[in-house]
Computed example of a mutant assay.
Amino acid sequence: MEEAKNCINCNEPLIGKFCYNCGEKVVEKSDFSIKTILQQFVDGFTNFDSKFIKSFWFLLFKPGQLTENYVNGVRKPFMKPFQLFIVVNVLFFFILSGADIFRIPSGYFFSIESNLKALEAIANTKQESVEFLKQIYDSESLTNSKLYIFILIPFLSFIIWLVNFKKKLQFGIHAIFAIHYLSFFMLFCVTLVILPREWFSPRVTQLTIFSFNFLYLTFALKRFYNDNWKITLLKTFTIVIVFFALIFLYREQISQFTLYLMHK
């Protein structure tokens, strides 16, 4: 194989085995040996596993440090923010497949007269039973709540940016913080599954989620934005209240959107 003098990717002159401009590796005969291919296969699993465990550990037990590391350029040992968010999202909806955190179950949604009347109208049009359509609603609302969960990120980012406006940081930095916080919120909900179910009534579950998120966000804000405790607590209270309001709004909109699609 003829040795390239310029990078095949960006056409910059090559110095050594890697392009200084784009990082592309020079192709060598050894790249196609069985030993190299097998090594890449093993590295792919072990590297992902290492990043996966380390990212989850920092996300759960070191509030704010994952964001701090990413912003400061310590990125290689950890999963990228959106990559982490997607993995947590999959875990959340796989393990908590019946959870109503991001959607309103049919039993509650159709207890509202206007929603029930809308469903009955659909049942008459499609010649289906109301009970059957409720099952369809539960399935589709769950799917929609998974598909559109990323919509919460820009709104949460905006709130975090707003309360930290005087920091003069780029909006994208606040977005990274928001992604990590939302990922923690979902991962914490997943961890509750390992605890005995009899410990948690719906009210106790809500209080536990709110309390732990308040504590976590307090330490995350303190570490990353480095305000005094009084300002940090005020910011935490504002963000948590608005965040939970966003979740309730998201649940309502996902449910209404699902009902709207059922008209089609």
Rank of each mutant, 00 (worst) to 15 (best):
L192K: 03
I136C: 09
E3W: 08
L59F: 03
Y250C: 09
F94D: 14
G16Y: 04
E120F: 08
V190H: 05
A99K: 08
V74Y: 11
K25N: 01
V242M: 10
E140D: 04
L60Q: 07
I53V: 12
Y148V: 06
F85K: 00
N72K: 15
T232P: 05
L217C: 01
L261G: 05
F185L: 14
P13Q: 12
I95A: 02
E2K: 13
I179P: 01
F85R: 02
K62Q: 14
Y108Q: 15
F48R: 15
I173Y: 15
I149M: 09
I247H: 10
T143N: 10
L59N: 04
F52A: 13
Q65G: 07
T143Q: 10
Y137G: 03
D49N: 11
T205Q: 10
I8D: 13
I173W: 10
L14T: 01
T67E: 09
F237I: 11
R103V: 13
I153E: 02
G73L: 09
N9S: 08
S211L: 11
V88W: 04
I37S: 06
F210C: 05
K222M: 10
T36H: 04
F48Y: 15
K146Y: 12
K62P: 00
F110C: 00
L133G: 04
I151P: 00
I101M: 11
G64D: 07
T258F: 06
G23N: 08
L152M: 12
S114P: 02
T218G: 06
Y250G: 06
S114C: 01
L116V: 03
I254S: 09
E3S: 14
S106L: 06
K51R: 15
L215E: 06
I151L: 12
F85D: 01
E252V: 11
F248M: 13
K166W: 08
K54I: 03
F48E: 14
Q83A: 15
S114A: 11
G107K: 14
V71P: 05
V130I: 10
T36K: 13
R223D: 10
G64R: 06
P196I: 02
L261K: 11
A121C: 09
L133V: 08
I151A: 11
P196L: 07
F78N: 01
F110D: 02
F210A: 14
F109L: 00
D227L: 05
T36L: 01
L142F: 08
F224R: 02
V71F: 07
N164D: 07
T46R: 06
V27K: 05
L162N: 07
L60S: 07
F61A: 03
V240C: 11
V71C: 03
S114E: 12
F18R: 04
V204M: 14
R251P: 06
S50D: 12
L84K: 02
F102R: 05
I136K: 15
